[in-house]
């Protein structure tokens, strides 16, 4: 799956996008966030305040129960501040 990071999540993670293959046990957005926290370093820091992380799967906002699968584009970002 392709992961994208924006704003301060991008800065903390240290990259704007990457392709990853998490273990099969990662089935939902919540699982993926937990896996990210376990990766250590900037990832742990980026996801430490889960309430500040918004998620889009294939460019649509989703909740943490949403499934994730190989081939998905999953974006992580803080609450939006445009306009």
């Amino acid at each position: 799956m392709k992961l994208l990071y924006f704003a301060w999540l991008r800065e903390k993670a240290g990259l704007s996008q990457e392709d990853v293959t998490p273990p099969d046990t990662v089935a939902t957005v919540a699982d993926l966030i937990e896996w990210q926290i376990g990766r250590g370093g900037g990832y742990t820091e980026a996801f430490s305040d889960e309430a500040m992380v918004r998620v889009a799967v294939n460019q649509e906002y989703v909740g943490v129960d949403h499934p994730v699968a190989a081939g998905d584009e999953i974006a992580f970002f803080p609450p939006v501040t445009g306009g």
Binding site: F6, A7, W8, A56, Y61, A75, F77, P78, P79, V80, T81, G82, G83
Partner: peptide, 26 residues
Amino acid sequence: LIDWLKTKAPFWKREVTPDGGQWVDA
């Protein structure tokens, strides 16, 4: 349009002041 855009469109503002750069909080 502007009220929904502000909370739904994926844009993020970063301000630079003499103290440095800071992401704007929602």
